[in-house]
Design a protein around this nucleic acid. Sequence first.
DNA 1: CCATCTTTGTGCACGCGTTCACAAAGACAT
DNA 2: ATGTCTTTGTGAACGCGTGCACAAAGATGG
Lengths: 256, 256
Amino acid sequence: MATGRNHRPATRSRGIPEATVARLPLYLRALTALSERSVPTVSSEELATAAGVNSAKLRKDFSYLGSYGTRGVGYDVEYLVYQISRELGLTQDWPVVIVGIGNLGAALANYGGFASRGFRVAALIDADSSMTGKQVAGIAVQHVDDLETIIDTNGVSIGVITTPGGAAQQVCDRLVAAGVTSILNFAPTVLTVPEGVDVRKVDLSIELQILAFHEQRKAAEELAQEPPSAAGLPAASEGRRGDQGPDGDIPAVMPA
Amino acid sequence: MATGRNHRPATRSRGIPEATVARLPLYLRALTALSERSVPTVSSEELATAAGVNSAKLRKDFSYLGSYGTRGVGYDVEYLVYQISRELGLTQDWPVVIVGIGNLGAALANYGGFASRGFRVAALIDADSSMTGKQVAGIAVQHVDDLETIIDTNGVSIGVITTPGGAAQQVCDRLVAAGVTSILNFAPTVLTVPEGVDVRKVDLSIELQILAFHEQRKAAEELAQEPPSAAGLPAASEGRRGDQGPDGDIPAVMPA
DNA sequence: CCATCTTTGTGCACGCGTTCACAAAGACAT
DNA sequence: ATGTCTTTGTGAACGCGTGCACAAAGATGG
Ligand SMILES: NC(=O)c1ccc[n+]([C@@H]2O[C@H](COP(=O)([O-])OP(=O)(O)OC[C@H]3O[C@@H](n4cnc5c(N)ncnc54)[C@H](O)[C@@H]3O)[C@@H](O)[C@H]2O)c1
Ligand SMILES: NC(=O)c1ccc[n+]([C@@H]2O[C@H](COP(=O)([O-])OP(=O)(O)OC[C@H]3O[C@@H](n4cnc5c(N)ncnc54)[C@H](O)[C@@H]3O)[C@@H](O)[C@H]2O)c1
């Protein structure tokens, strides 16, 4: 059941909190950039700024991994890159399949950021027979009939779903039955999966709606605070300006 | 500063918790589906299942909006659709610009799910002069030189960034200076914005890394629990099977 | 009008995540 | 060796989010 009644604290993956896990990739990216600039060490303060988080939070996050810093100096960049990579399981290769090679699926297939970490597009799968055999991003699209074989042959455990919403659950079921235990879902559907299977979803529409909510609230707040101060300003059709509002209160960056 | 030192509780947008706001689109989607099937009313239990959440959570979420249910009956679907739409600001039209019309930008432009709610692609913007004037999803791509004019003319307050990472901050700065106060960022970059501007990010790479972490953990757990029980099973090269693991503990669905 | 039954709305307790603030650790200079 | 200075690692407090469990509300039937 996707409702996910969690018996256990839900996050004792070996003591590493879920929120911390979600930030590790962020740290890793910042560290990789430093590594490329041959910076040997970095303080929690510097790294936190680069990653867009609080330095205390970063230190606590790292403390779950172990004591990898040196007091008075900071963290060794290379060493930390390795430790985080290992913790995230990026030292091994992760074959990934993308199911549904339409606009979005093709874009993902073409995305270079995949291979940069341990992820490799093992196969592209689509139900449209006229797509079969066509090259997308240098990989031949295969038919969904062969899904099970493809998963098995390549030892795939991570699947990406970019089919229309209507087909998502069905595709998900087949992926899971074939052995996939992690799914990244781009379709606007609530997937139901057995226990032990992780689903993460990316939903553009939801993100926009959340932004719209705050946008509306900002507009209302501005309107509510405007009259007392400058009441007789020219009633332009567009009252919007490039300023930063009366006082922001929403954290600008949110972990996905 | 994107670090977002929050003076206020960070979420008293008028009492509606941020976590609730993030779920409203989910409820709205489920309700819309019911509406299309002409279902007049729905109980919290049914709707919660459809949205993939706990029914108590759903009721509490709705309680922030007001008392829109009828005890013993449930919620009026149409009425709730309207109330949530209004709360999210979807009763008005939101012009959106997409900056960076490459693989991903083009896919988003072609995405139908945009218009379904109040979002309208007002303009497509790219820095590549050879793209200027080209039609993508029926809309002519405009040059980034005209960004400010486009924002202003169309009264755009929401921008989507799909440029390479290196250009994202620069594009963001221009969008903000031109009056955009909400940004959806697909580039793998931590954006720094002034207070009052909301940034949400969608990061495929991070999602995959989080999945990889759990995947690795599941594999380790399986290995640690296997030996005591069935030690002498055929040492196949692939020990992975389609079962549901010893015990899942991660909530399958996570709000972005 | 009353009894029963369903379903909402919420008080309450609990746990996770965040942040502060500081003691301990170690580098580095003298 | 000793002192100073920087920065880590973490104890503790607090606030947000979640889920249980139940009283109140209202529908429905007799
Ligand atoms: N395009 C976007 O920017 C975007 C954004 C957010 C969400 N989404 C979602 O992503 C999904 C894909 O969007 P898109 O624009 O690429 O759509 P699309 O129609 O271009 O592509 C869908 C592809 O899936 C294939 N397909 C259909 N049923 C299948 C099945 N059972 N098995 C395998 N393949 C199947 C189709 O042949 C097609 O190639 C949709 O659910 C959409 O809502 C898209
Ligand atoms: N393609 C994906 O699936 C995917 C997935 C996750 C993240 N991303 C990220 O999304 C971004 C876009 O990815 P893509 O695959 O579409 O890349 P792309 O190279 O295909 O497209 C980038 C586009 O941005 C334009 N551009 C560059 N600088 C610009 C500027 N200053 N102003 C306006 N436009 C500019 C380029 O001309 C190009 O058309 C990247 O940051 C990438 O890391 C992509």
